[in-house]
Design a protein around this nucleic acid. Sequence first.
RNA 1: GGAGGGUUGGCUGAGCGGUUUAAAGCGCUGGUUUCGAAAACCAGUUUCCCGGAAACGGGAUCGGGGGUUCAAAUCCUCCACCCUCCGCCA
Length: 408
Amino acid sequence: MLDIKFIRQNPEKVKEGIARKQAKIDIDRILELDEKKREYLQKIENMRSEQNKLGKDDIVKAKEIKEEIKKLEPELENTDKELQTLLRKIPNPPLNTVPTGKDDTENIVLREEGKKPEFNFPIKDYMDIGEKLDIIDTQRAAKVSGTRFGYIKGGAAMLEFALVNLAMETLAKENFVPVVPPIMLKPEMMEGMGYVERGAEEIYYLEKDKLYLVGTSEQSIGVMHSGEIFEEKDLPKRYAGFSTCFRREAGAYGKDTKGILRVHQFDKVEMFSFCHPEKSMEEHQLLLKMEEKLMQLLELPYRVINICTGDLGDPAAAKYDIEAWLPGQNQYRETHSTSNCTDYQARRLNIKYRDSKTKKPEFVYTLNGTAFAIGRMLIAIIENYQQKDGSILVPKVLQKYTGFKKIG
RNA sequence: GGAGGGUUGGCUGAGCGGUUUAAAGCGCUGGUUUCGAAAACCAGUUUCCCGGAAACGGGAUCGGGGGUUCAAAUCCUCCACCCUCCGCCA
């Protein structure tokens, strides 16, 4: 959500921002509603003031005022309701650093890092290797749960735990607090994160219990401090969340149907930061740096993408993706993503900090980034570390966690 | 799943229809005092919205929504959460 005062004072800027994001919201209508709302509010408050002053001295007059207020209140309510609905639909305008573009074809590759491995034998796809080693089983998963599920077994399961350990250990050095959050959220919390307005189709909802399943722990960590006020000295507040993530993949029929690249359920370690507004650019770079560091520790080749305006989600004002090189598919595929959501989520969730100078509560900025999306990391490791004999080497940095150096 | 009891400001805790201002204590901030500090004393201290350059003025806010009333923290109602006991359970 945007600040109505900001919209009032900078209508052209807002219009330009949401146009860059390919969104169509009637800002003039919002301004009109805002003015109407304040008019009603002023009237009602004046009347109420008068009523309060009367007290029990003139009960007849007080009763008259009460009736008048009762007539005006629905007008105010309806105006405000329409205003709030429209306000919540406005996406977060992009920062200046974000390239303008209509969709993902106009994202910018910032750089390529790491050395692509060379193979002196015919390379295989991760599913060929995984099935032969019996560490990924999507057939039986389909039998018991349907398409887009998988059993991660044996060496692959051990790799998962190793990756989680590596991520937690690395992030702890930068003061990320490890957290295992709830994976079911109340509707108002999910809405606060800004993913329901346009992404409801993507999210699982438990009708009977009125709970959403999280698509990422970003959602349950972001809402953790809702309604709270941080002390400025406690910022940035960083978390490293581990959770299972659930996605309906409703709009992805026929896309990546094979294997475990795009599944309904996977585990992920996610970074989340509540930070001071002036420090958000720095913080975003830190999250990106941590993502790159983790990829470098695993010695995996990757490239960094600056996501263009048309490909940003509603809450994000800037976003970088990391795509890992997958030799088995001869292409880069997304494994990480980090977003600066500025005060968009904080305003919806009412998360503030107390400014040390003014002593007034101000909204924090929220940022998130992937540490490891386990499934996709397994894919990247299997394909990059495959050997001629069909086995997989365990990346050096993970060996102390797995206790073995090779799968198969 | 069943039966009871709760939810008040940063914290403890009173108030259970009406002195427009939510008691008191603790904490916190500022001041007086002091060579400095502690103590003491004085003042301030929820959050949000509207108007205003500001000072300030107005409104809302006692878990949340709705209702009764001229007037609600207080009465009614629905919901959420917490606690205790019973049942089930990793």
